[in-house]
C-alpha cells in the first residue's frame, strides 16, 4: 500500500499546497465544464427543467466511490487513512436544510460560486460576499449555538458500518440508484421540455 501519498509521507506540507492548487484547478475546470457557473442552470434543477446538478453530482460521487473502492480492494490505497468528517447528525440536518434554502435563493453553492465569479457573474460576487457575511454571523453567534453544534455526535461513521451491509453491496446499490436517477432525470427533462413547447404554441 502506498496511497494516500501525503499520509505516507511522500511529500511535505509545502508541496501539499501546490497539490491543493492543482487539484483546485481540476475541480474548477470540470465544475465550469458541467455548467455550474450559471445560477440559472443550477436553479433550474429545482424546477425540474434542467437536472444537470443532479447528473453531474451523482456521476462524480459514483465515479469517486467506485474508484476508491477498487483502489482499496487491490491494496493500493489504505481507505482507513482517508479523512472522514465526523458525523453530528442534528446540526448537519439543520445545516443541510439552510444550505438548501440558500442554494435556491442565492443560485449557487460556495464551490460553484467561485467558478461563477471567475467567469464574470456579478451575482456570484455578491453571493460570495453574502457567504462570508453568513460565516461571520455564525462565528459571532457561535458561543450561543456551540452546544447544538456538538449535539448528536456519532463519530466517524459510514453507511456500511451503520447498516451492517457489505461495502461492495452498497457500492452496487448506489450505482443502481444513480443510474435509475439518471434515467428518471432524462425522462423528466423531456417531459418538461415538451410541456413548455406545448405551452408556447
Amino acid at each position: 500500500m502506498m496511497a494516500p501519498f501525503f499520509k505516507y509521507g511522500l511529500f511535505g506540507d509545502d508541496v501539499s499546497l501546490v497539490v491543493a492548487f492543482i487539484t483546485g484547478i481540476g475541480f474548477g475546470f470540470f465544475l465550469e465544464r458541467g455548467g455550474f457557473n450559471s445560477a440559472k442552470k443550477l436553479a433550474a434543477q429545482f424546477y425540474f427543467t434542467d437536472l444537470t446538478v443532479f447528473k453531474v453530482m451523482f456521476t462524480a460521487i459514483i465515479t469517486a466511490m467506485v474508484g476508491l473502492y477498487y483502489l482499496s480492494v487491490i491494496g493500493f490505497l489504505d481507505l482507513s487513512l482517508v479523512y472522514l468528517t465526523p458525523t453530528f447528525l442534528l446540526p448537519q440536518v439543520v445545516g443541510g436544510l439552510l444550505l438548501g434554502f440558500g442554494f435556491v435563493i442565492g443560485g449557487y453553492c460556495p464551490g460553484t460560486s467561485c467558478v461563477a465569479v471567475s467567469t464574470g457573474r456579478i451575482d456570484a460576487m455578491v453571493y460570495l460576499g453574502g457567504t462570508m457575511f453568513g460565516i461571520l454571523v455564525f462565528g459571532e453567534v457561535f458561543p450561543l449555538v456551540s452546544n447544538f453544534y456538538v449535539s448528536t455526535p456519532m463519530g466517524q461513521i459510514t453507511l456500511p458500518q451503520i447498516t451492517g451491509l457489505p461495502y461492495g453491496l452498497l457500492v452496487f446499490l448506489v450505482v443502481l440508484m444513480a443510474l435509475g436517477g439518471f434515467v428518471g432525470a432524462e425522462w423528466v427533462e423531456r417531459k418538461m421540455a415538451s410541456k413548455k413547447a406545448g405551452a408556447a404554441l
Binding site: P91, A124, M132, F133
Partner: peptide, 17 residues
C-alpha cells in the same frame, strides 16, 4: 437574493461542517 442566499449558505455550511 444572491446576498441573502449566500448568507444562509454560509451559516448552513458552518453548522453542517
Amino acid at each position: 437574493f444572491a446576498f441573502a442566499g449566500g448568507g444562509l449558505m454560509g451559516i448552513g455550511a458552518k453548522l453542517a461542517r
